[in-house]
Design a protein around this nucleic acid. Structure first.
Lengths: 344, 344
DNA sequence: CTGAAAGCGCTTACAG
DNA sequence: CTGAAAGCGCTTACAG
């Protein structure tokens, strides 16, 4: 039975470097050199090998390569979020798809790992060390030890958003939360609003903190007083936004604008305002954050702050691959953009 | 430098089967036998190896194992949907998470592959053959050739929903779409509705066809006439549902119930009915399909047909792993359940 | 039940 | 620029 014939299982035995070498009339070492950049290979040998590769349909056996290089040429996308948030929040999809696509361009497969429970987290950590070249980490809890653990284990890592309490040892990519919040609040001010409230994100997440800081700083810049009654914390969920808005209307019935720290919460805010009989934007202007699919699904469509998800995911991938290649960690902050629609 | 000391890169050199064998005082072959089920190993050797594994912190090098076994011990989750649907439809998240978790229980990593374009599809197909033991396929287009291609390439495969035109050669797991539609339509009938319309799914998808068939059959069983004016096709998107409902109100203003083939479309239907000033469920009852997170986000909350996503994903994984292990393809149909909430 | 040995497909000094 | 050779960490007949 020749090497390329059917074997018993119905799968063909794929060609190896040896088949290519024989076909090209060179040694296996030369074929390998061609595969790895073509350095120290004569033009004629290069040519012969390339057409032999084409003719045989050869593709490298990654297991054999990984065994010797010690690299897996794959990357994990590790999500440490409770189940509900992953299902509800469209931002994760955008990010996951962006990273998958950006990695595919480098021929690097993405292993999806989800750690909703402590047991899953341990299992994933065990797998990561030694099976994956690096990790794209999506996690927002300040209590989450996974960034520190991965860093300590020497695993190349880039987080989406600044991991709390990691100083600058860990790479991350984030939008300019503070600047985005500032743009929105200034926009509300310039459209004549003077009682501007905010539904904040969780204050144990860097994004939540920064957006609130941007709100507060801009109020000061505009000469508006900071009124604690106008600040309500949220949890990035739709239901949380609705509850926050109800509370807000109770505490400050004269509010004329709300900056909401996420589009999903803003959807909840819209629901609460509608129930309360307040018109948006006539009575109360509502500004969101993210420009996620939720912004377009909302009624009215949300004026919001766009996070550049495509760039966030491609930068995460770029920084991670660089780090796997030996570069030092880096933090990347990307600008946001105010998107005007109907809610403010 | 001993084998377990730091090397230059800050990573430790992980223990190998050789370290375990030395520690346990047996040969590497015996260690390997323990690793692969412990057959033909004496109790005392088993014991020595197990504690040596524990002591050294040994984990198998999957690359070395794969090189020799020819298996990768990994599985691809291949999504061939246009970008928008993946972002909008929460069903994908539920399925993706379910499969990830079910595979994790078998220590099998999931490679996420997304093929939105023809180029991505080709790249993924090239990667799959030889790098992955099997594929979980999520794709609904009747024109999609990927199921046939994978099958022809001899790659173990299980689809979510019956792949169009594949006979019974390809394994799949699906909900009982026809039965679910029947339950809903019968429920609407029994609550007194007599002008029951439907917003159907795409008719080039098996789910769309089956749910429509269930609608039609139940009408007949209830002695209601089949009126083409009451049947509007949709595309599983929210916007499509809204458009369909507008059209429906125009064609049949006396409609008193709508069975909508997906929750996301049902959200759009609710929006259109609200705009038209129709109360739900008083004037018009609305029944959805999926029991996705969209059903709970809708106002009023949707009465719908639950697809058992947890079981669908775990069955997909079970059937795929069985097939990788040599079993024949199989089709699995899972029962649905009517979930009563506020919209009908 | 066990060990010695071959070999999976590749990369990489090494010597020329 | 090139080939011969060692070796990555494992599994699996084979002989005992």
């Amino acid at each position: 039975m020749s090497r390329t014939e059917q074997n018993g299982t119905g799968r063909r035995r794929p060609p190896t470097i040896h088949d290519v070498a024989r076909e090209a009339g060179v040694s296996r070492g030369t074929v390998s050199r061609v595969l790895n950049g073509g350095h120290n290979v004569s033009p004629s040998a290069l040519d012969a090998v390339q057409s032999a590769i084409h003719k045989t349909g050869y593709t490298v056996n990654r297991h054999a390569r990984s065994l010797i290089t010690g690299r897996s040429d794959s990357v994990a996308f590790l999500l440490t979020e409770p189940q509900e948030r992953f299902f509800e929040d469209p931002n994760f999809n955008v990010l996951l798809r962006g990273c998958t696509t950006a990695l595919a361009a480098h021929d690097v497969p993405l292993l999806l790992m989800i750690a909703g429970t402590e047991a899953e987290r341990r299992r994933n950590m065990r797998y990561i060390a030694g099976h994956v070249d690096g990790v794209l980490l999506v996690s927002s809890h300040s209590g989450d030890p996974v960034a520190a653990q991965l860093h300590d284990a020497g695993v190349p890592l880039v987080a989406c958003g600044k991991p709390p309490g990691q100083g600058s040892k860990v790479s991350y990519v984030a939008a300019d939360d503070l600047g985005g919040a500032r743009d929105m609040v200034r926009y509300l001010y310039e459209s004549g609003r003077r009682r501007i409230a905010t539904v904040a994100g969780p204050l144990d997440t860097p994004g939540g903190v920064e957006r609130l800081a941007g709100y507060r700083a801009t109020l000061a810049e505009c000469g508006l007083p900071y009124d604690e009654a106008l600040v309500v914390p949220g949890d990035y969920s739709r239901a949380g936004g609705e509850a926050a808005a109800s509370l807000l209307l109770e505490r400050a019935p004269d509010v004329d604008a709300v900056f909401v720290a996420s589009d999903l919460m803003a959807q909840g805010v819209l629901t609460a305002l509608e129930k309360a009989g307040r018109r948006v934007p006539q009575d109360i202007a509502v500004g969101g954050f993210d420009d996620s699919p939720a912004a377009l699904a909302a009624r009215p469509e949300l004026t919001t702050v766009r996070q550049p998800w495509d760039r966030i995911s491609s930068e995460m991938v770029r920084v991670l691959l660089a780090q796997i290649g030996g570069e030092d960690p880096a933090a990347v902050i990307l600008p946001t953009e105010l998107v005007r629609r109907d809610s403010a």
